[in-house]
């Protein structure tokens, strides 16, 4: 089980990092989502891998599952869900306003067409 979980987290993280480094916004968002999946699994594993144990210290049970990482994961899921929603909206607004999916923020020097300038100031 350790091998499975560890390699699972590794694959998710590697995929996430690769996608987050791409130039378009959409793969970046997917990459960030992969990274948050990886970290959620990782937090779970940090409470040690236990099967079929109660999350409290009970007399009849030989051990217990650490409940704290589960609470942490819950918080992490809520936060990362909200953040992902935000960045999706942001990317969508960016796409609608500029008509391009590029993730880079190039400074508009004079005379370069198609590059957004700071004209809002």
């Amino acid at each position: 089980m350790e091998f499975l979980i560890a390699s699972g987290i590794a694959v998710l993280t590697a995929t996430g990092i690769y996608l987050a480094l791409l130039r378009q916004t959409f793969p970046v968002i997917i990459g960030l989502a992969f990274l948050t999946y990886a970290v959620n699994l990782f937090l779970f594993a940090m409470g040690r891998l236990t099967v079929d144990r109660p999350p409290i210290i009970a007399t009849g049970s030989p051990g217990y599952a650490d409940p704290l990482p589960q609470a942490l994961v819950l918080t992490a899921i809520v936060i990362s869900f909200g953040m992902t929603a935000l960045i999706v909206v942001l990317a969508l607004r960016g796409f609608l306003e500029t008509g391009s999916d590029a993730g880079n923020a190039e400074r508009g020097e004079d005379g370069i067409p198609g590059v957004p300038d700071r004209s809002h100031r």
Binding site: T25, L35, F42, L90, G94, A105, H120
Partner: peptide
């Protein structure tokens, strides 16, 4: 504004990676 949206996307993405590292 378009420029601010682009820059904002970068800022959010960088900090999301930072948050993941924090976790």
């Amino acid at each position: 504004g378009a420029y601010r949206l682009r820059a904002g996307f970068q800022y959010v993405a960088v900090n999301l990676v930072g948050s993941t590292l924090f976790l």
